[in-house]
Design a binder for these strands. Sequence first.
RNA 1: GUGGGUGUCGCCAAGUGGUCACGGCAUCGGAUUGUGAUUCCGACAUUCGUGGGUUCAAAUCCCAUCAUCCACCCCA
Length: 435
Amino acid sequence: MSQSFLSVQPYKGTRDFYPEEMRFRHWLFESLRQTVSAYGYEAYDGPMLEPFELYAAKSGQELVNEQLYSFEDRGGRKVAMRPEMTPTLARMVAARSSQLSKPIRWYSLPNLWRYERPQRGRLREHWQLNVDLLGLSSEAAEIEIVQIAIDILRNLGASSFDFEVQLSHRELNNDLFSRVLKLQPEQTAAVARAIDKRAKIPAEKFEELLHEAACSAEQISTLKHFLDAPLLEIGEVYGESEGYLAMCRFFDGVNALGLGPVCRFNASIMRGLDYYTGTVFEVYDKHPDNRRALFGGGRYDNLVGMFGQTQVPGVGFGMGDVTLKDFLEVHGLMPELQSHVDVLIGLFDADMLITSQALARQLRAEGLRVEAVLQPQKLGKQFQYADKKGIPLVIMIGPDEATTGQATLKNLRTGEQQTLAQADLLPTIQAQLKI
RNA sequence: GUGGGUGUCGCCAAGUGGUCACGGCAUCGGAUUGUGAUUCCGACAUUCGUGGGUUCAAAUCCCAUCAUCCACCCCA
């Protein structure tokens, strides 16, 4: 018998958002929106479905081959559910690049899909804040974007000790690979992957990976020295490459803004997406229970150009709600949220329904959030209900009040109760809500 | 895709072969019918993810299957 019922579980890797979870999501998104709005960023959105080719071109092998939700539509077109937002953004910008006034400051909160096995911090569907600044080639863009990333975490309650922004530059790495190490082109991918993993694996394992990539002992030692060197030393020892100079300009900027302690140069930061062309960065959680990359981004100067119109440089990042929630949890920053109802209008008995409804309408018209009891219940139940839902005020109109045009207002926080003329309710309520 | 853990009421959870499967939270009802958070009383799994097997007897052992979590791979 039970076999004939449908499962109540959500699809693997997806979540139901009951009101409780939805309250958190709204709280989180609202905080994110406020932060990016403070920098003048405007919201945009695109379709959840895109042509398969949009991702095939630039997003990276694994992402496209293994983790894309894709299908053929009824017209035989290959379609994909968006696994990331940046290609959509690039497409939208490219479509109107000549009309949009630069720089373009946009943000989005899309839900994204990736087919993979769910694990801590990674599900199949998640929501991701995307913040992008397009139309600027100078490091001023990076400096603004990194400031936003920092402010987002701070405005969620994090302190500067809770996280760290680690940055590197694709051109710095390319210069290392080709000019300093003189790697063959076919070696670079494997070396890059080894560098990317370095923080998570033992030193011997790292060397082993480099051996497998056909690196000589000398190359390995040079590479290790390079990766461990402070930024300035790289310039002194290995020459001032284009990427090096860009990093210097960036750090001069953030240091002058007092953000130096939160930002650190780390030549090991690689990032997997193929379309990054310059600065790349990742924000790390410093909590011992959650030492991981929270989110990251970088510069993509060629992405818009692949649509054939003019080239528009861009910098941006994406942060997912799942990792962000993990971050807030380990740092004790989760808010305690309740529903936002100001007043419950009780129902003394069925005869009072219209009276209480009329009062509710009146108070709502004044901008209050008013919930009204619709079915007569014991008064105790009604007060209990308000208490459980965290509604601070209850209004009750019984026969006594009705005859005199009064109402009884009880404040559940203070326990105080008063009976007053219905006309005087509004100022009293407003005063009590401010407490 | 690979490896490991777990699956007992909405949630947490005791129980490891032998009467009707502890307990807590939540939910619902009640404590002389105009008032809540405390307290008290009561209700709430013929059933232990599902299917099969072993046994006189299984939530407890075995097999399969599904789900979920963690790690790897990879990475927004």
